[in-house]
Design a protein around this nucleic acid. Structure first.
Lengths: 335, 335
DNA sequence: AGGGGTTAGATTAACGATAAACTAAATAAA
DNA sequence: TTTATTTAGTTTATCGTTAATCTAACCCCT
């Protein structure tokens, strides 16, 4: 085991001070061109690898951000992660990724671990720590944090989300205007705060179109294929296949399950049943029936979020970041 | 800005040494029950957050692993990442995620950055640094590293992959035995070393079934929807729609593009064209036509890889890890 | 009573870097 | 010529831990 090369190794070799080497490597302070060149050359030759840990301890900066994904399978968030990682990398930051597997306790644990690793900032994606009592917990660490995809329930927090009520409103409005008046709604479960905004959009769109809200055709399930499938099954069993003409799902994963069940029943989409949902996951265009859906621009949310959080870290700005991105209807074959 | 709470803060408050507090917090060494309790209580009250950076500097362990994804969009690797992250978390490690966006230089840069952050080990997923000349580069950092999904080209490296030749062989063999003798092959591009193994499986299966290998019906494209679509387009244009009866794609993303083009032509799958591919991505069962494919168990690869690498780190074992997982045929509607 | 062993904690010295303060020489300004 | 300023470094202290050594008190045994 040969000794690791540090600034000191280089300094001794050249008979200069450690500080001189440190400054030369960073191109900071006043070190002559010649000495800088000599130092860099030797560092290269010795394959010197700066120890970011030591540097971080001293500077109190790690150039690392935490990203906690809480509530869903990772694959739905791939574009979000990609957006965050890309932007962060461009700005000189790395990302530590944690998955909380839908557990509040795991999520808190992840936050603690990340804080202990002295991340410069934290992203909470689709977090479960959105209720007011979580604010104190998050604030206690005194690091900047930002919610993505799902917003916090208190004012003054930073977040980047899409306008769920608006997106749902537009979709329902479109469905009604194009001929559907009874729209079954398989919403995401009410443990996910977003469910409320989507429900609101649904109700407002109905009201605007003078259709009475009927809670008997609204259900709530977890955002998975299986639950979508079963929810759809329940609807078909209860209502009879002929009486289901339009279904709106709270997210694409649910819609994929519902779609499977509808096709299994021998029904045509959109001929017999019109099906729409929310998110626009990557494969929405290539599903059994290409899916009409509301696009939630997760990649963009990631990029914007990262940009803003890093800006905040670097400029210690106190300004609130409350971005609500307009969603976009994507009409495909399923309606 | 109130002062941050450190071991020293606690030690002074209680009039004991910093070491005593350190030991008590870790439950190591000999500190009395009473003092330990007192220390932990105060730490809790002061919301003490251990500084892992300082600890890492001293212990030369960061409990952090690097994961570099090189060559494809993140979403295809979501299960892999999930597998790695989950296992790592269970064993007390965090993951820093880097995306090299198909650039060798970016990948090297990512490795350097991670090494500088003193990760305890490194995963290279679908790496571009698999050729022999990259060995020296990777070895120079003196940290354990492991290839996932795509193996290195030299002996003695650690990797967990699936048996690409075997999987392809089985699929082609199945296609032939079930009636197809002319199987178009849209393989992944030859910049991806895996292409060779899949080609080998293809050829061996043909040979075993006494079919002559015809390089004119084999093409190579990047693993994207667009390139799959265009490759299929080229085939249809050149051969005429009636002369294409079976297509095997080097990965599912290519197949999704090819499928779209085939359906666009008005051809039925599998009636007119049988379509199969490799990977079994999450949505393979829910595509326009549910896709017959070879399952590459990426989640499992992630879990196994993480387990083995961490074991290696913790026990400083020198044993080689060369795991080749048997792939599995998943037969669906498309054939 | 004296020696050996344990227990509970304190002291000291790193880990590898950087910030802050300082110095000596060179250069510019008055 | 004298003073101020810049340049090119050095010295010292510190970031927050932990490993290694050490000490004092206590216990047990013969």
């Amino acid at each position: 085991m040969k000794k690791t090369v540090t600034l000191k190794t280089i300094a001794e070799e050249l008979g200069v001070s450690v500080t001189a080497v440190s400054k030369a490597m960073r191109g900071e302070g006043s070190i002559s061109r010649e000495l800088t060149a000599k130092i860099k050359k030797l560092a290269e030759e010795m394959n010197y690898q700066p120890n970011s840990i030591a540097s971080s301890l001293r500077t109190r900066r790690t150039q690392t951000l935490g990203l906690v994904i809480s509530d869903s399978t990772l694959s739905l968030f791939a574009p979000l992660i990609e957006g965050i990682e890309k932007t962060a990398a461009e700005m000189g930051y790395n990302i530590i990724l944690c998955n909380a597997h839908s557990s509040v306790e795991k999520e808190k644990e992840a936050v603690r671990t990340l804080v202990n690793k002295r991340i410069d900032g934290l992203f909470l994606a689709a977090s479960l720590l959105t209720s007011k009592k979580d604010k104190e917990f998050l604030d206690s660490f005194e690091i900047p944090y930002m919610f993505l995809v799902r917003r916090c329930d208190w004012d003054g927090g930073d977040f980047v989300i899409n306008d769920n009520a608006e997106g749902t409103y537009q979709m329902i409005d479109y469905l009604v205007k194009s001929g559907s008046d009874k729209i079954f709604f398989i919403n995401i479960s009410n443990t996910i705060t977003t469910y409320r905004e989507r429900l609101r959009g649904y109700r407002e769109a109905l009201t605007a179109n003078k259709i009475r809200y009927d809670e008997k055709i609204v259900s709530n399930v977890k955002p998975t294929y299986e639950e979508g499938y079963h929810a759809m099954n329940k609807i078909l069993m209860k209502e009879g296949a002929n009486n289901v003409r339009a279904v709106f799902c709270g997210c694409d994963m649910i819609a994929v399950g519902a779609m499977e069940r509808i096709l299994e029943e021998g029904l045509k989409i959109p001929g017999d049943v019109r099906l729409a949902s929310y998110d626009d996951i990557e494969f929405a265009a290539h599903l059994r029936v290409p899916l009409t859906t509301v696009r939630q621009p997760t990649y963009k949310i990631g990029r914007l979020g990262a940009e803003k959080l890093i800006d905040k870290i670097q400029n210690q700005s106190e300004s609130r970041i409350n971005m609500v991105i307009k969603p976009e209807l994507v009409l495909r074959q399923s309606t």
